[in-house]
Design a protein around this nucleic acid. Sequence first.
DNA 1: TTGAAAGCGCTAACAA
DNA 2: TTGTTAGCGCTTTCAA
Lengths: 327, 327
Amino acid sequence: MSAAKATMKDVAALAGVGVGTVSRVINGVRVKDSTKEKVLQAIAELQYEPDEYARGLKMNRSNTVALILPTIWHPFFSEFAYYVEETLTKANYKLLLCNADGSPEKEKEYIQMVKQSKVDGIIGITYSDLDKYISSNLPFVSIDRHFSEPISYVTADNYLGGQMAAQELLQRGCQHPAYIGGDSPYPNETKNRKAGFVEYCQSQGFTASVLNMPEPIEQLEEQLHELFSQQPEIDGIFTVNDFMALDVIKYLSQMGKQAPEDYQIIGFDGIRISAERDYLLSTICQPVADMGKTAVELLLGMILEKKAAERVVLPVKFVPGKTTKAR
Amino acid sequence: MSAAKATMKDVAALAGVGVGTVSRVINGVRVKDSTKEKVLQAIAELQYEPDEYARGLKMNRSNTVALILPTIWHPFFSEFAYYVEETLTKANYKLLLCNADGSPEKEKEYIQMVKQSKVDGIIGITYSDLDKYISSNLPFVSIDRHFSEPISYVTADNYLGGQMAAQELLQRGCQHPAYIGGDSPYPNETKNRKAGFVEYCQSQGFTASVLNMPEPIEQLEEQLHELFSQQPEIDGIFTVNDFMALDVIKYLSQMGKQAPEDYQIIGFDGIRISAERDYLLSTICQPVADMGKTAVELLLGMILEKKAAERVVLPVKFVPGKTTKAR
DNA sequence: TTGAAAGCGCTAACAA
DNA sequence: TTGTTAGCGCTTTCAA
């Protein structure tokens, strides 16, 4: 049994053909059936596996896509990564996982690293403005639409989501709506959630209270305490995401208030701990599976068919949970 | 501005040296300071970045490690992946993410794929027996110790964890302990959780009820119903993992029973939805960060220093939550 | 200390 | 239809 890995040359020698022919068989280029047979035989016998690196060097592609995330340890991102990986695998692409940890520096470092690694494209959920770091010839799809350059993105309809949250709360009888969220220094889609909510309330003659805390958020509990002691009448809450909603619920439960009896609350994202587990609360649900799939499709379109940048906005939906009343 | 990517040859030409010298500078081999200066200058000017694939082809390594998981969309695995990625990045390695979806076929496919991709090693949380598919010269670290071959593994002390769970429940006054879990056809460490629990109970003069459901688990609720209607006296439950505990809690709450008043329950894993979030319940917590770090260290030891296979068993700890009484 | 050149395993252009 | 060969960008040996 040979220890060394078989190369194309070995296969060619054993099959009694040229390396070109072996290459043709591997790549599905037409060769005479009898020849093909011999080659396949030899491949099987030597347990030959093509070297992706030699191929990548020659063809200048890697069949690999980098996914840059704030952190994989978060149900929204890990669900997204799950679908990205699934779709990539079906297309015979591999996934390089990059946790940027929410740091713009690490995001840039990863962009650098990933360029060397000759990835064929990047899918990024990033906070900072990466325009300058992404060479225009490296296909890039952003989740979120905060780039100034004409870059592809996939995003949920965050503005509409905010409106929907307002509508659902008001329809359920809330008289004093409030928005609670964090405020990032970087432009991002969460700002639209707030805008949609506040503006819909306004259009219905309500003025939403707003607690918009600069990130990173410090002394959350104190800030919540201030809000609710100054405005105890708040009875309908929309938060920037599900995690924030959980924090608010926890705080209010310490204050002896329960949803949906004492107040109603709607989160954003539609987080589930894993497939087949329940949503955590009433929420505006992002179409994560669809977003992951679409992001990959956009990217592969750019890679394989040189398609131009595209923008896709996907619909959100309200998922009633235990933190809102029945209508 | 040149559109094409600069190569080492371009750098050499601009700096007026040979490509070998450029290579030496890149790799930190000693060259004359003045020469080095010229080369660095040229590198900066051309924004040269070495091609990892050419390097990989030549040196036969990729600085890439594959992580094979059942699914990234699960807090335990995504936390593990988080720490693996973090440790790899520090060592200048990249992470290829592979979701096997709990299917032995996909696991094998990935092993195949990953071999072609010239990864330098594999870290795997796998269910099936992959011995034959892993060529002995490809470094592999398993999480769990169910391999027959002498393969490196990192695992938590599952048996001790089971014992601890029993001890904690009995110390808190439980008189009727029960174990609830799923039974996989493949050998794996969860069997030790059960064994540790049952045997510790026995040693203390208690006989634990056991509900061991063949996987994939069907009609969970019916099976729980049967258990608890036949043995309503059960007052201390240990489950194979946190998810199962959540299911049991949900079922019992439908029956009007609450922990820790009506019964006490301890899960296994120590799942948190994300960093800085609480544990879901009282649980035997695996040292996930340490496991991820150790797995990478073992693997890099095998890759870089040709170290032999090693086995590491890490300690678990009991994390009291809201589903057990105070002692 | 450094340049020249071989060659890693593959694809594709060219010739036969 | 198929064999031969140049060369992808790099590292490393061998000479100078």
